[in-house]
Amino acid sequence: MLVLLPPSETKAPGGDGDPLDLAALSWPELTDVRAGLVEALVELAGDLPAARAALGLSPTQDDEVARNAELLGAPTMPALARYTGVLYDALDVRSLTRAQRARADRRLAVGSALFGVVRATDRIPAYRLSAGSALPGRPTLRALWRPTLGPLLAAVDELVVDLRSSAYAALAPVPGAVTLDVLCERPDGTRVVVSHSNKAHKGRVARLLATTTGEPGDVVRLRALLRRAGFHVEHPGGTALTLVVPADWATR
């Protein structure tokens, strides 16, 4: 089972690993695109107004541009430690046992606008690039990634659970992947999407899938696994699942 997580805008600073080695990252088929994007970000960082515009940043976020300028020399850390925020707080890899962390390292991967996809253990620097960013003089990220990342993910020979946000899934859709929508159910029975709840509950689902000793091979078995763990999961059809949470869980 391969569980694809969305990245986060926020990244943990620092690190204790050697500088970025693109050749050492998982899926070396993506190296050329990765290298081109790293080069583009470093070059863009030399033009502060252009970098702000391309990356959607304000002057108060110039430290993000500075990070990009140092991409090739900055220290690295494992991807699961680099990404932060609501989903990663709920995933809480630091609390896993050694055996659970080993399973998580095998199963979890993170979609990335800069690297395409990285394994949990891949060492990366802090950076700023989002799926919707438009780099001057370059094709869209979707146009860059789809020809290489799409076939790579489509060829994964195991169940893929795609928890990426729509913007990152659009960079390279995975045919046949199980997807998960999170809906909050109000007392009157109506259902709405809540961003915070979506991220937190996907983090909890990711934690279960990363650590379970089970190995579901299809959407039906995956749903059964989630339901046994106490999740209210519906299967509207195909490979789509819907996780329904009560309104009073919206901020949990």
Rank of each mutant, 00 (worst) to 15 (best):
G237A: 01
V3Q: 00
D21R: 15
A210M: 02
L2P: 01
A200W: 01
V118F: 08
A54W: 09
L71F: 03
C184V: 14
P59Y: 10
T97A: 11
T190C: 06
D248T: 10
S26D: 13
L135N: 07
L209T: 04
P78Y: 08
P75C: 11
H196T: 15
L209C: 06
T213F: 09
L91P: 02
T10Y: 09
V33P: 03
L48Y: 04
D188L: 09
A247C: 13
A224D: 15
A240T: 14
A104R: 00
Q100I: 08
A109H: 07
A35E: 14
R107I: 02
G230K: 00
L4F: 05
A170W: 08
L41I: 09
N68C: 08
V156I: 13
V118G: 04
S26M: 06
A229G: 03
G203R: 02
R98L: 14
L129K: 05
A12Y: 01
R227I: 11
A170K: 12
I124A: 03
G17E: 07
A102L: 14
F115A: 00
T179R: 14
L222V: 09
E39N: 11
L153P: 06
V219W: 01
V244W: 02
E39S: 13
R94A: 14
R227D: 13
A74Y: 01
L25Y: 10
T148I: 11
L72F: 03
L30M: 06
V178A: 09
A74I: 01
L225Q: 13
T76P: 02
D181R: 14
L243R: 04
S197V: 12
L209N: 02
P151K: 09
P187C: 11
L48R: 14
R223N: 06
A113D: 06
G111R: 07
P59Q: 12
R223K: 14
E9A: 10
R67G: 12
A113L: 00
L114N: 08
T179C: 10
A51S: 10
L243K: 06
V160A: 08
L55S: 03
T211V: 05
A169I: 08
V245G: 02
L71P: 04
L41G: 07
L114C: 05
A40Y: 06
G238M: 07
G203K: 04
T31D: 15
R252H: 13
E9P: 05
A23H: 15
E43L: 11
L5N: 03
S195N: 12
R52P: 07
L87D: 02
S197K: 09
V38L: 01
S58T: 15
E70T: 09
